[in-house]
Write a protein that binds this DNA or RNA. Sequence first.
DNA 1: TATCGCTATGTGTAATCTACATCTATCAAC
DNA 2: GTTGATAGATGTAGATTACACATAGCGATA
Lengths: 135, 135
Amino acid sequence: MAKNNELEQQSTPEPFRMHGDLLTTTLLAFLRNRNAYGYQLAQQLASAGLPAFDSGTVYRSLRQLEKTGLVSSFWDTSESGPARRMYSLAAAGDLFLSSWIDVLGRYQAVLQKTIQGFDRVDAVEESEPPRADSA
Amino acid sequence: MAKNNELEQQSTPEPFRMHGDLLTTTLLAFLRNRNAYGYQLAQQLASAGLPAFDSGTVYRSLRQLEKTGLVSSFWDTSESGPARRMYSLAAAGDLFLSSWIDVLGRYQAVLQKTIQGFDRVDAVEESEPPRADSA
DNA sequence: TATCGCTATGTGTAATCTACATCTATCAAC
DNA sequence: GTTGATAGATGTAGATTACACATAGCGATA
C-alpha cells in the first residue's frame, strides 16, 4: 500500500531553509586566507552576498569544526575589549577544503550540464587561471 | 564566564557529514531537464560523481520539495512493475533554482577569492603570514 | 556611577534534516 | 515458491539550524 496518501497541498510554502554546507566551507575558506574570530567571520559572511546566517549558528559551527579537528582556536586577549577566540585552519581542514572543492566542481558540472542558459559558473580549479584582476 | 571551557580535543575526527543543499538543488536541476521518479533520480545521483545519498533521504527530500511547492508529482502506472511517483519541476521550483544558482555564483566567487590568494575582501593590512597550522 | 550601546561569545529549545535499518509491494526468472 | 531487482516509504537517533535570550568587556556620556 503505497498509493493512498497523496500529500495534502500545503497552502503556505515555508521558507525552505537552504543554507547548509555553504556555512562551514565558507568559514574554512576564510580561515585559509587568514586567521579570524567568530564575530569577524560572521561579519565577513554577512557582507559576502551569501544568505544570512545566524551568529549563534556561526559560533556553533566553529566549535563543531574544532571538535572534528578541521580548525583550532585559542583565546586572544591582546586587543582591548572582550576576549576573542581566534581560529586557524588545521591541516585536516585544508585537506577537507580541497576535497570539498573537488566535490563542488562535479556538482557544478552536473548543474551546468543539466541547466543550459545559466552558465557563468566557472569551475573552481580547472582550465586556465582566470584573469586575476577582476573585482 | 566565557573562557573556562576549552574543548576537549576529540581524538576521533568523525566523518563530518557534508551533503546538504547539494541534494535538493541537484534534484531540482535533474527535474528541470526532464521529469523523473525517485529511484531514477537516486541512480542518477549515484552516477554523477557526487557523494552518495541515502535513498530514503532522496525520497523524503522529494516529498519535502513537494510540500513546499517546488515540485509536483503523480503516480505513474503505465509501465509494468511497481508504481512510480513521477515528479516534475513546478514553477516555484524553477524560480528557486535560478536564485540558488545566483547564490552559488557568489559562493564560488568567495571561495575562489580566498583560496587563490587575492583577498581584498577586507583588511589588507595583515602582515602575519596566513595559515599557521599545527600548533 | 550608572546606564546605554557596541563588541564578542555563548546557551536553550523546537523544528528540521540525515543516515541507517527495516518494511511493503510488484514482477520476472528460476 | 523463492530469489532478486525495482520502487517507495517509515522509525529512530543523532546532528544541524533559526530564533530568542544570556553573559561579559569596555567606551562614552549624562
